[in-house]
Structures are given as structure tokens and as C-alpha cells.
Amino acid sequence: MAPSNAEPTTDRLQGLIDDHLTLEGPLLPILHAMQAEFGHVPQAAVPMLADALNISKAEVHGVVSFYHDFREVPAGRHVVKICRAEACKSVGADGLAEATLARLGVEWHGTTKNGAITIEPVYCLGLCACGPAAMVDGKVIGRVDEARMARILEEAGA
């Protein structure tokens, strides 16, 4: 979850594609690899993927845009996901989410002005018996209250 700021060069993109071409159904693994390295799926990769997989650019774009995980631009330096699903709602996730968004002055999927934090909704982290749950850069946190969230945001540089 800590992508480098490396510029996506054509060589590197092609390398990531070639690494996965022997897999059955390689597109999602390639997209994950690109996102892990660059924090998003670079636009330049679309025609390269279409060419390598013998599908249309529209099909590649269709896949990238279908899945919530794939970004067309990089997120903030830290990604905070707050669970919005039922089990967390039953123990106050709505209030936590509202307070967090208000504190940062952003909407869902928004990034703080200083680029430190992107806030995203997530529908279940499998922490349903210790909600409200959140995930910060891939690290899970349970029983998050507003005070805990304030510390998390502070550490992330909000």
C-alpha cells in the first residue's frame, strides 16, 4: 500500500505486463501490479494492455473502470477506509464517518488539500464483531471511535 512515486515508463509497464502473461486470465493481476507500483493504473498502460491481451482499448478501460479498487489518478499519501456496512452501522459507524468527513472537510473518495489522506468507504472488512472498523494503508483497526480516528488522522498528517 506504499506505492513509490516512480514515473511509469513504457519499459516498466511492459515489464509488468510481460511478468504476468503466462497466467490464465492475467488482466486483474497486471492491474494490481501496476497499482501497487504506481498507486494507480496509468493511462499509458491501456493501449499496451489491449495490444498484449488482444482485446480492445475499450475493453481494458471497461475493466479498469468497473472495479472500485483501480484508480486512474493516485490517491493521497495515506488511504483511510471506513466501513459503512450493517454490522459497523449497528455500533455507530455512521456517526464516526460523518465526524471524520466533517473534520477533514472532504466527501467520500476525497483527498485532503495537503494530499495527506484519501477517505474511502468500504463495505465490510470482516471485523464485524469489533466494529466500527477501519483500514489505514492496509492495516486493520477495530472499535474505532472519534478519539481514535483523530489520532489516526493526526499521525497520517491531516
Binding site: 450493517e86 454490522a87 465490510c124
Partner: peptide, 12 residues
Amino acid sequence: DEGDSGTFADRM
């Protein structure tokens, strides 16, 4: 792909 809220047995 255990996406249902309230379930975590697959994960466990």
C-alpha cells in the same frame, strides 16, 4: 469473496 457484512468465517 466474502463481502457480506456480518460474516467473517471465510477470513478466519
